[in-house]
């Protein structure tokens, strides 16, 4: 098992390197003087000069890349101009909020999409199949930022069932003691039921917004692969052997149908992390996405750079996790490694 993980890790290295190179190139692709850009509009001439020195802009590109790598290795992602904080510190402190939101969205999407896809595949042409088709075509057409606003309007303004769509926790509550910095988990760890419920109420709308967007590829893939599996030979064998319908459906069909679904998770995460930025803006969610947007508005360049790098690395790691998960389900891959 360890050997497999190590192999996959090595396999992910080129992508990781690609991410670092691209982020580096993006800093140098700035039109005009990168030093002036990083220093900000109001910087003095000395400040600009200092940055130029630090980035090594007077050296050649390879040396600059070396410096960049050295800084990254030291955990130096630069400093935010607007907050004065090191970028890495802020990213690390805001990342849990983004991860919490992303995973809640994924859970929501999975819980809805998989049963929907399975139900649609079991009765092709039935109303549930049509519903599935509608959801998959409409789902990918949803601009997340718009759905978010719409949900906020309906559930907060019209119905009043959702809390004010701003932030992670209603200010009347104190956040739970930080352990993982994910409020849902922390509040459970601290045994604070009311806080947990408040957090859940707060995260529901943004998570559903993001989930609706990725529901479509998940449901579509589940339906297609379940349809394929249900008509395969080994399902016929299982039925001919008299296995009970639930066994045939779940132990035999569903587990096999999951394989292509797991493969699409890569794309799903790409969607999720991308729409994270938009949803965080809509719901004033204090994650790394809104950090990037705040910096964008302030023309604060280092945080954006750090954000792109962090997202790239996160995505590569998530893909690695998906690979490993696939190996867990499919013995053929496991032994190949």
């Amino acid at each position: 098992m360890i050997r497999i993980v190590a192999l996959r890790l090595v396999g992910a290295l080129p992508n990781l390197a690609g991410v670092v190179v691209v982020t580096f190139l993006l800093t140098r692709a700035l039109p005009g003087d990168p030093a002036a850009f990083f220093a900000g509009a109001a910087a003095s001439a000395e400040a600009v000069e200092q940055i130029r020195e630090k980035l090594g802009l007077n050296r050649n590109l390879v040396e600059q890349f070396g410096l960049y790598l050295r800084d990254l290795a030291r955990g130096d992602f630069g400093q935010s101009l607007s907050t004065g904080q090191p970028v890495l510190t802020e990213l690390v402190s805001r990342l849990p909020a983004s991860l919490e939101l992303t995973f809640c969205a994924l859970v929501f999407a999975t819980v809805v999409a998989l049963p929907l896809g399975v139900a649609a595949a079991r009765r092709p042409g039935s109303w549930i199949d049509h519903l599935c088709r509608l959801v998959t075509t409409a789902g990918v057409s949803l601009p997340t930022f718009f759905t978010g606003l719409l949900l906020a309007y309906v559930f907060y303004f019209l119905l009043g069932v959702a809390p004010s769509p701003l932030g992670r926790l209603d200010p009347v509550f104190t956040p739970p003691p930080p352990v993982t910095r994910m409020y849902l988990i922390d509040s459970l760890l601290a045994g604070e039921g009311t806080v947990f419920r408040a957090c859940l109420a707060q995260i529901a709308l943004p998570a559903v917004t993001m989930g609706l967007f990725v529901l479509a590829p998940l449901a579509r893939m589940t339906r297609a692969s379940m349809l394929g599996v249900l008509s395969s030979d080994f399902i016929r064998t299982a039925r001919a052997a008299g296995l009970a319908s639930p066994t045939v459906l779940y132990t035999y069909a569903f587990r096999n149908a999951l394989l292509p679904v797991v493969t699409t998770l890569g794309m799903v995460f790409s969607f999720l992390l991308g729409s994270n930025v938009l949803v965080e803006k809509v719901f004033a969610w204090p994650g790394i996405g809104s950090y990037a947007i705040e910096s964008l508005t302030a023309s604060d360049y280092a945080p954006i750079q750090g954000f792109v790098l962090a997202m790239g690395v996160l995505y590569v790691l998530l893909n690695l996790a998906i690979d490993l998960l696939y190996g867990l389900i499919d013995p053929r891959v496991r032994l190949e490694a």
Binding site: P14, N15, L16, G18, V19, V21, V22, T23, L26, T27, A29, L30, P31, F269, S270, F271, L272, L273, G274, S275, V277, L278, A292, L296, Y301, I304, Q305, F307, V308, M311, G312, Y315, V316, N319
Partner: peptide, 24 residues
Amino acid sequence: LRLADTIMAFPLFVLAMGIVAALG
């Protein structure tokens, strides 16, 4: 192929953000 893989190594919308932020 490496070029394509490298692009795909990012969440695509995030990469687009980074590119526009960098290019102007």
